[in-house]
Amino acid sequence: MKSENLPLIFDIRHFTLDDGPGIRTTVFLKGCPLSCIWCHNPESLSAQKEIAFYDHLCMKCGECVTACPEGAVNPLLKQRIDRNRCTACEVCTEACPTTALKPVGRYYPPDELIQILLKDKIFYDVSKGGVTFSGGEPTLFMDYVRPAMRELKRNAVHIALQTSGMFDLPEFRTKLLPYIDLIFYDLKIFDPEKHKKFTGVDNHRILSNLAILAKESNVEIIPRTPLVPDITDTPENLKQIERFLKALGIPAFQCLAYNSGGDEKRTAIGKSINRSPDAFLLPLKK
């Protein structure tokens, strides 16, 4: 795979405890078919490279202004970077002496990714942990993810996937499913209208993919619902989801506390904050 065909990875987190059993390493792929208005990983939405600017880390040295070949750095802008001009060439992030300017997203050739993930193998082994693919939406890049999963499986590493369910099932079934031990499956809003309104896409496929997977595969599935105030956490929505899952024979689902932590990141990559109901932090419900 040539570098321009590779998907971007915006983070690889080692030693995570919240993305499945044991000590895990989580790979975050950049790019998502949904655009949930509450998304707390806004940098995961676009599959393109972006440049993040953190005002509070900036020492106002001006190195970035001189360095930018496109004249895209404008010290007068609050966002610092003129997104229309910026080609994400990373010249400024290299020049910046602090971490105020950072590229969001990096290409990892498949071999390098595999090597990085296998380096943590002992952590997985001693804690019954493993690797979690997250995003964005990992299933957007099945051809990239597949060899990594295969290699991990060959090394007896537990594999988990976090997905929105927006994937082509036949392709998923052949390319990824055989390697996966656990799927965290997001069920955000049951009502199709509302789903479209708040996430930008229709949820028909999401529901049907889950229904089929639950029936024909014995992979462990944990459906998850982020509790966004007044959007997903309404009794009505939760009840509908529960009923749907019961019919599929899935006994429980996880509710995730919603955190509004995306704001800083959203500002950093020059996106406006556009969230209708105010978000607050909820305690985790199971």
């Binding site: 030693f15 405890l17 000590i23 952590f123 001693v126």
Partner: peptide
């Protein structure tokens, strides 16, 4: 506690 202990074990195995 168990995580901490497991991390130490991993560190030793490395």
């Amino acid at each position: 506690i168990e995580t901490m202990a497991a991390a130490v074990e991993a560190y030793f195995r490395y």
